[in-house]
Design a protein around this nucleic acid. Structure first.
Lengths: 232, 232
DNA sequence: TTGCTTATTGGTCGCACACTCAATAGCATC
DNA sequence: GATGCTATTGAGTGTGCGACCAATAAGCAA
């Protein structure tokens, strides 16, 4: 795997290398967890020496925060693009719930859970989490406000509504590592149901099932990604 | 603090010592986090040698799970006692929301967040978390069922209602480490409001503010408990 | 008082981690 | 083709962790 005899050095521009490192860290964060972002792990991923990672990120905590920010931003961008391609706000919201509630979102749920816990010990990460929360809240609030403008939704305070919806989504997401595969639809729908009520929509208007891609559900969610020897 | 010269051994019965260890671990779990349950840390707390902890818990993971179970069980018992002392189910629920929503519950919120994340890597802990979830769901479902029996509440499926309430509480709890001190009441009340709606109660019936002890709110929530040198 | 069981100690081992820094070698420029 | 800048390496430091085990002494029973 790792070339055994005499390393061949590849020299890249600082910008490229830095981006590469953040990208690798974001991937590790999503698949294995933020605690697995170590100098050795990321270096191995990129086939370089650990010292190089230290060179770009003298303090690992900064890389961890960066990785989370990168992954969360990318997800938000995919979920609620800055410039809505077209179509009604209602369709956007339906898509939003279809994805955030589906099992393919488990990695993301795990990452948020991870980041929120780790924020307890990592100030830099905590700030980044707060930034992202603002971003998500604002973006969702924006879509809702647009819907209100178009007359599709009805609410007094779009941002407050967004917060309430996000709270429910978070409440569902905390079970990403432990299951909650019992009460499926009646509980899973709780998020969309909340939105429908808050926005003055009739039941089922935002039903995720309608907009989910056909081949999506099968995977029964892997139990745990990569326990690693000792996690501390 | 730690006796410097020549340790004086204190010999206790295995049952006592074991309970003592679990108790210390539960305290550390609540105040500093499950990752801080280490052989050395718990030993220091009890003024014994690390080897002794190993003797009672050959695998630390078992102690971690035990500590979480102990803390969570104690909290549930205080929150929703097995045998309701008396009074209406409605009063019990009001008390329940008053406490679970107040800032004094932050340690508990942090612990659940911690446990749910750590479950990703610790199978034993994961099982314990699932056990506790069942316990909480069942206990809350019981209170609701009792309320329905007494005609105070109205719902088709008490347990499903309990799950929905718990989801909202979890959604609020994830912010224990990061804040959410912006939208206070309108968001905080989300849990009780959900319950009121689900149980066919009129708005404000379960208002936490009414049952909160007078001297409760002041503390603006400490930012972080114990960052420790390197947390991994 | 003596003896025995075993709770408790003290020390050690191996591992993974972040962080530091002088030496090295890619590569653009001249 | 030689030169200089600097991205990259290799080696090393110190810390904290879980796990292991032979030696020790506390306290009960005879």
């Amino acid at each position: 795997m790792t070339s055994s005899v005499q390393r061949k050095r590849v020299r890249k521009s600082p910008e490229d290398r830095r981006a590469e490192i953040v990208g690798a860290a974001a991937e590790v964060a999503l698949t294995e967890g933020l605690e697995c972002i170590t100098l050795r792990r990321i270096a191995e991923q990129l086939d370089v020496r650990p010292g190089l990672i230290s060179h770009y990120f003298p303090a690992v905590e900064d890389l961890v925060a960066e990785a989370f920010g990168s992954a969360a931003t990318a997800e938000l961008e995919a979920l609620l693009p800055t410039e809505p391609p077209d179509g009604s706000a209602l369709r956007h919201l339906a898509r939003f719930f279809a994805r955030t509630t589906g099992p393919s979102y488990d990695d993301m749920s795990r990452l948020w859970l991870n980041a929120r816990h780790l924020s307890r010990y990592r100030p830099v990460l905590r700030e980044r989490v707060l930034d992202q929360e603002n971003g998500w809240r604002g973006r969702l609030g924006g879509v809702i406000a647009a819907g209100v403008e178009q007359g599709e939704f009805r609410t007094d305070d779009p941002v407050l509504t967004a917060v309430r919806i996000l709270v429910v989504i978070d409440g569902l997401a905390v079970h990403a590592n432990t299951g909650l595969r019992d009460h499926p639809s009646s509980v899973t729908r709780l998020a969309a149901a909340t939105a429908e009520r808050e926005l003055g929509l009739s039941d089922g208007t935002l039903n995720p099932a309608d907009t989910t891609s056909p081949t999506d559900a099968p995977a029964p969610t892997p139990p745990a990604p990569a326990p690693v020897a000792e996690q501390s």
